[in-house]
Design a protein around this nucleic acid. Structure first.
Length: 556
RNA sequence: GCCGCGGUAGUAUAGCCCGGCCAAGUAUGCGGGCCUUUCAAGCCCGUGACCCGGGUUCAAAUCCCGGCCGCGGCACCA
């Protein structure tokens, strides 16, 4: 019917016909049906074979977007670093800009030195996080450096009769809420407003003593829309701004600054979370007064990482109380925190792309993120042997002399290899405490991965004694031997694996093979049979030699 | 409370605008198997969803109405 709309008026006839034929076909045997299908209707089979939904995932088109003319923006408040939730508008803005070969703007919205005091280092950290995410922008603005522009626009707005100075206490305004038309400040002349505005700028008013309000619909169903505040006074002597200190006391609110900037900067498409929906309504009043055209807006729901604290203020207070190691604590869902625990930018981009632009909130589990990350990291991560809660194993009966094995860093062989040597006839090495008593028990044949097989003689909690059994892998297979990782005692390096678990950091201590000395900070590796981890530090001793490898666990 | 927006498997998403190629696709998770010098990866099989109720229609995940549930906003925050 979808293909032949011309048949629709005769749907009843068609339905009857279909029914008859289906009955007829059902009378045939399965073999008969197959044969007929192959001989007479092979095109049906052809079509079936085509996989569905295999096309590359793409973002839905942007409303009103023109190739080469799209301008998007990401406008963070530098009072904190960005987290996975903020990454959504950032990445989507960037992807759409790329999709339409447009431009992207990065704008720091730092117009509240009092309750959302900007963090001086955040300006840089946010840029770094964005760059790491692969987000590239074309122009950059800082709102606190654009105050003169806002003042000028405010004046124009007053001149257009779109705003008035309200020098009464806030309660007074609220009292008039139902009959705003009669609110005395609202009735002031343009001249009077201009004069009062000049006095605000001059510093005649203190905090809370005067605001500039935008004249909106006094009967708007949402009371917050009614004559919203465009400028207020902030005592910057007491609350200095990290960029402009106490140079200004009259500050635009978010709705004024953002609205004006979006137009001035030529933004054509605003991609933002749905908590801003009411703001669109408010800002449109300004656009009407100025005779501007409002950009296209795309709203989407929140993106949550399950079991992670996503709230900025909560994260902030945790850090202030000294819980956590800072903005990049691996327990936090900040971009820096995720990076530090081995989540790649590619994985984050993929999650955000897969979540797309829906109104509904999305809650991603870490397992899900990990699955995506694993597929990215798997082919690049060196396989390294490390043992935790190490137990010493003494192997006797080895062939005399040097036993040298060359082990590739990755089964695909593309990551190079390292050599590990063992000295016969008696070797000391360490195995993972978790294996002792399980697969490593008296009488068992165990293969030390990539090296040789041993027969366990004694398996105590602190010492395992074993006897060399054979070299060949086939021999291990014949005995269905467990294959375990191990570390030669001679030049083992201390390792600490930090596992973020909820709000805890569990530290597991162990030993890692000597090759770990060659790793670099930031590298993502896989501890064989344990999981993926990111090298956080190679701590040196007094002589500058690596003393300990610190890695943060990512996922299995 | 008022205003706005949503509701497809455990999770995320496709399909909804424009009703019939949808007895609903994909990814991940989960269960099982194969393969493998890792408990990773890979391969195969299985699992499981249109919030509820009415209506329109030959035909509803898709359109309409009602309900329920969830989210967001209601600042001199952004």
């Amino acid at each position: 019917m979808a293909e032949r709309p011309d048949l629709r008026p005769r749907a009843k006839e068609v339905a009857a016909l279909v029914k008859r034929i289906v009955e007829e076909v059902n009378k045939l045997s399965l073999e008969e049906q197959r044969r007929l299908l192959r001989e007479r209707y092979s095109w049906v089979l052809e079509r079936r074979r085509q996989p569905r939904g295999e096309e590359e995932r793409q973002l839905p088109p942007l409303p009103g977007a023109e190739e080469g003319k799209v301008v998007t923006r990401f406008a963070p408040n530098p009072d904190f670093v960005i987290h996975l939730g903020n990454a959504r508008p950032a990445i989507l803005s960037y992807m759409y800009k790329e999709m339409y070969r447009g431009r992207m703007i990065l704008r720091f919205e730092d117009t509240d030195p009092r309750t959302k005091t900007p963090l001086p280092e955040a300006y840089l950290l946010i840029r770094q996080d964005l760059e790491w995410l692969g987000v590239r922008w074309d122009r950059e603005y800082v709102q606190s450096l654009r105050m003169e522009t806002y003042y000028e626009l405010a004046k124009r707005l007053i001149e257009a009769g779109g705003a008035y100075v309200d020098d009464r206490p806030g309660e007074e305004f609220r009292r008039y809420r139902g009959r705003l038309e009669e609110y005395p400040p609202r009735l002031r002349s343009i001249e009077e407003n201009l004069e009062l505005w000049e006095r605000m700028l001059r510093g005649d008013y203190g905090e809370g003593e005067a605001v500039l309000r935008v004249k909106t619909d006094p009967k708007h169903p949402d009371p917050s829309v009614r004559d919203w505040v465009a400028f207020r006074i902030i005592d910057t002597v007491r609350h200095p701004h990290p960029v402009v200190a106490d140079r200004y006391i009259v500050w635009p609110t978010y709705n004024f600054a953002a609205a004006v900037d979006d137009h001035l900067m030529g933004v054509t498409h605003i991609l933002r979370a749905k908590e801003h929906m009411q703001n669109t309504v408010k800002q449109q009043f300004l656009y009407k007064y100025f005779g501007w055209e409002y950009p296209h807006v795309v709203h989407f729901g929140r993106l949550k990482l399950e079991d992670f604290i996503m709230s900025k203020s909560l994260l902030k207070s945790l850090i202030e109380r000294g819980i956590g190691e800072g903005l990049d604590d691996p327990r936090f869902a900040t971009i820096a925190g995720l990076r530090r625990r081995g989540i790649t930018a590619e994985a984050i981009r993929e999650v955000i792309l897969s979540v797309g632009v829906k109104y509904t909130d999305a809650s991603i589990s870490f397992k899900n993120l990990a699955a995506i990350n694993r597929s990215i990291v798997d082919e690049k991560a060196k396989r390294i042997m490390a043992v935790f809660n190490p137990v010493k194993m003494i192997v006797d009966g080895l062939p005399k002399g040097r036993l040298e094995v060359e082990i590739p860093y990755h089964p695909n062989g593309r990551l190079g290899s390292r050599r590990i040597t063992v000295e016969g006839p008696r070797a000391e090495l360490y195995i993972d405490g978790g294996d002792v008593g399980r697969t490593v028990k008296p009488g068992a044949i165990v293969r030390l991965m990539e090296a040789f097989n041993v027969e366990v003689v004694e398996a105590g909690p602190y010492l395992v004694k074993a006897r060399f059994h054979s070299r060949e892998l086939e021999e291990a297979r014949r005995h269905s031997a467990a294959i375990i990782q191990w570390v030669p005692a001679r030049d083992a390096l201390a390792v600490e694996l930090v596992k973020p678990e909820g709000l805890d950091l569990v530290r597991e201590r162990g030993l890692v093979e000597a090759a770990a000395r060659q790793l670099t900070t930031g590298e993502i590796i896989q501890f064989v049979r344990i999981g993926f981890a990111r090298v956080d530090a190679l701590e040196p001793d007094e002589k500058g030699e690596p003393r300990k490898l610190v890695a943060i666990y990512a996922h299995s």
